[in-house]
Amino acid sequence: MNDPAPKTVPLDDKDFRDQLVAIIPPLRAFARGLCGTRDMADDMVQDAMTRAWAARQSYAAGSNFRAWMFMILRNHYYTTLRKNARMVSWDPEVAERVLVAGPTQQDGLNVQDVQKALQKLPAEQREVLLLIGANGVSYEEAADIMGCAIGTIKSRLARGRVALTALIDGPAYKDEPSDKGSRSPAISPAG
């Protein structure tokens, strides 16, 4: 007789709540980058938290809570995106309110320019740049979150970085919705 499949052990409710509190800042940052506007991003995060709380019994204690939450958020984002095509358009007036800290350019690129350019990228390139470039998740974790192969993650990251650079540097960028056949040496993992 076969052994039964290992049973998921959920986290204690209090511990789950504590993890939820701790994940709010990075989740807000990820959502802000995805959505482009503060209000929409914060609504997304609150919805994701509510969904996560309702589904807390399905979270396995000891597994990667950050990846689990990011996955819930991005699933909710894409579902909403399908329902509301306005989310992908960038409103310049709204852009002025996106970063409460205002423009920062201590060194290198202007953060607002990068934020604006991010919104012009295909969503799958934007999210991989946000996950790996901004949040510092690994290729493996990003692949888990996005539900695709590590090779796809690397391809999207490389293409996203090239497109983002082109958008910031000048008008040469063209939309490239496919991940097919692209490679860039510009991004390298640590180590």
């Binding site: 990820f30 990667n64 800290a101 920062t104 953060v111 510092g136 998740v137 290729y139 974790e141």
Partner: peptide
């Protein structure tokens, strides 16, 4: 269950990476 975290970063001197991290940190 999800796999454990392994750190991966964009090169520290990469201007795009720096800007993305600033966006996140703000």
């Amino acid at each position: 269950g999800l796999k454990s975290v392994k750190e991966t970063v964009i090169a520290s001197d990469d201007p795009i990476g720096k800007a993305l991290r600033r966006l996140h940190d703000e």
